[in-house]
Amino acid sequence: MTASPEARLQAVLASYPALTIAVSGGVDSMTLAHLAHRWALDGVTMFHAVSPAVPGSATERVQRHADAHGWKLSIGGSGEFEDGRYRANPVDRCYFCKTNLYDRIRALTDGIIASGANTDDLGDYRPGLKAAAERDIVHPFVEAAISKAEVRALARLHGLEDLAELPAQPCLASRIETGIAISADDLAFVNEVETALSPLLPRQAALRCRVTREGIVIEADAEHAATPMLKMQAMVLCAQAGRLFAGVRAYERGSAFIGKPAVHHG
């Protein structure tokens, strides 16, 4: 009989005497943090990075869960904004982001560092995985052959419904079209727009505010992209900020990554 995802993950985590988990605030890393904490109370610490690319709501979520469940949590800067290679926003920007993140965590521990990557991530264009490999970062969900859907199922199984229902939320910098320099002002605007528009859509619906060379583009799941209120509110927000509104279109995963290798579909 094939072992359940929970049993597979428990076996993987048991193979590590201690872990420092990079917790972004999303469903994957948060679920991993919860389960590792429950199954290995004394050997798990969490690190959450704050930066202009991380929504304040994510930091608040991490802190709230840490306080409620007694995590050993460190919060610090990720350092990527000090790296000109990251700010230039090349197609492999994520490599420089994760390089800075993991190097910051490594300065705090000599132990094993873990990410919340799952098997679905392996089919995407993920330069950050290269940075992880160079630094011997482990991916327990990948080792346990656990997909995104199974991560959500594990969250529900363990009473973490608030996490299970979180929409996928990569960092805010993923909304900036490749080649447009990353700025804190753009990231703050993206966060403001997505926060304002998200109540107009179902909880797990895709929503992205893209900063493109044509202007601000809103992406939403195809069945919601034609919602009149979505377009109207986006136009108002752009006008208030003095930004050019370039329309609403169907969500396309990774559409801001111009020039990414064709072998991937991120």
Rank of each mutant, 00 (worst) to 15 (best):
residue 177 E to H: 09
residue 136 D to T: 11
residue 8 R to F: 11
residue 218 I to M: 08
residue 23 V to E: 01
residue 182 I to L: 12
residue 64 R to G: 11
residue 161 E to V: 08
residue 86 Y to H: 07
residue 154 L to K: 02
residue 66 A to W: 10
residue 186 D to C: 09
residue 170 P to S: 06
residue 62 V to H: 02
residue 119 T to F: 10
residue 197 L to S: 07
residue 15 S to Q: 12
residue 120 D to F: 09
residue 86 Y to F: 14
residue 2 T to L: 13
residue 191 N to P: 01
residue 89 N to S: 08
residue 48 H to G: 02
residue 149 A to F: 09
residue 187 L to G: 01
residue 99 T to L: 04
residue 135 R to G: 05
residue 79 G to Y: 05
residue 215 G to R: 07
residue 110 D to I: 00
residue 199 P to Q: 11
residue 62 V to I: 07
residue 72 K to F: 07
residue 22 A to C: 13
residue 75 I to E: 04
residue 27 V to L: 04
residue 180 I to S: 07
residue 135 R to D: 12
residue 63 Q to N: 07
residue 150 E to I: 05
residue 191 N to R: 10
residue 180 I to T: 03
residue 223 E to C: 12
residue 56 G to F: 07
residue 6 E to A: 14
residue 89 N to H: 14
residue 127 P to W: 04
residue 114 A to T: 02
residue 187 L to D: 01
residue 142 V to M: 04
residue 106 R to N: 09
residue 64 R to M: 05
residue 225 A to G: 05
residue 145 A to Y: 09
residue 242 G to L: 10
residue 12 V to W: 01
residue 176 I to Y: 02
residue 159 G to W: 13
residue 88 A to Y: 12
residue 45 T to G: 13
residue 217 V to A: 00
residue 102 Y to E: 03
residue 39 W to S: 05
residue 260 K to H: 14
residue 187 L to C: 04
residue 205 A to H: 10
residue 219 E to A: 05
residue 138 V to E: 06
residue 184 A to E: 14
residue 180 I to Q: 14
residue 217 V to G: 02
